[in-house]
């Protein structure tokens, strides 16, 4: 009986060693798909969100991340150029000053994609020329639909 018990223990230990090893391989973290939702226009909160993203990349590694930022409504102010504020409609802030531009550049260099809602652009009479480094490929028909779509594709949703 004792022998049988020790044999069973050996099996269990084997199982544990293996699952321990599996955890260790995944190591830091395995690959992640994440979408960050930005719809507020508070520059402090947006800066905080970009800092969250940088910390996220630091923890997981840019090679392990497919990270998108989806902006709609007031959130588009993140990439709105200050000089465009007088021209466009409905925005209270234009936060893409030089500092914010540098942060955005830094994240883009690490593979982060910034997506802008077309409904917002149309509704607020805003064009890509009013935005910092946004081209047609970065525009999605609807921010909300994009968030839903990405989640259905396995992206994890984070609202900073």
């Amino acid at each position: 009986m004792k022998r049988l018990f020790s044999l069973i223990m050996a099996g269990i230990v084997g199982l544990m060693v293996w699952s321990g090893a599996a955890l260790a391989v995944e190591g830091g973290y395995s690959k992640q798909k994440v979408v960050y939702h930005v719809n507020g226009d508070d520059p402090k909160q947006q800066t905080g969100a970009l800092r969250n993203i940088q910390n996220h990349i630091n923890a997981v590694g840019k090679e392990n991340l497919d990270l998108r930022v989806v902006m709609h409504g007031h959130g588009v102010s993140l990439v709105l150029l200050p000089e465009a504020l007088g021209k466009v409609k409905g925005f209270r802030h234009a936060n893409a000053d030089q500092q914010m531009q540098a942060r955005i550049d830094g994240l883009k260099d690490q593979g982060v994609q910034f997506k802008v809602c077309n409904n917002t652009l149309v509704g607020r009479k805003t064009t890509v020329d009013d935005l910092y480094m946004v081209d047609q490929a970065d525009i999605v028909p609807s921010g909300v639909a994009e968030l839903a779509h990405l989640q259905s594709q396995g992206f994890t949703y984070i609202k900073p």
């Binding site: 022998r3 099996g11 230990v13 084997g14 599996a22």
Partner: peptide, 21 residues
Amino acid sequence: QQIAASIALVAFGLIGGWLLH
């Protein structure tokens, strides 16, 4: 026999763990 059985059980554990994982 004990050694053989241990090895078999460890192998079972490894495979089981992998499949589960």
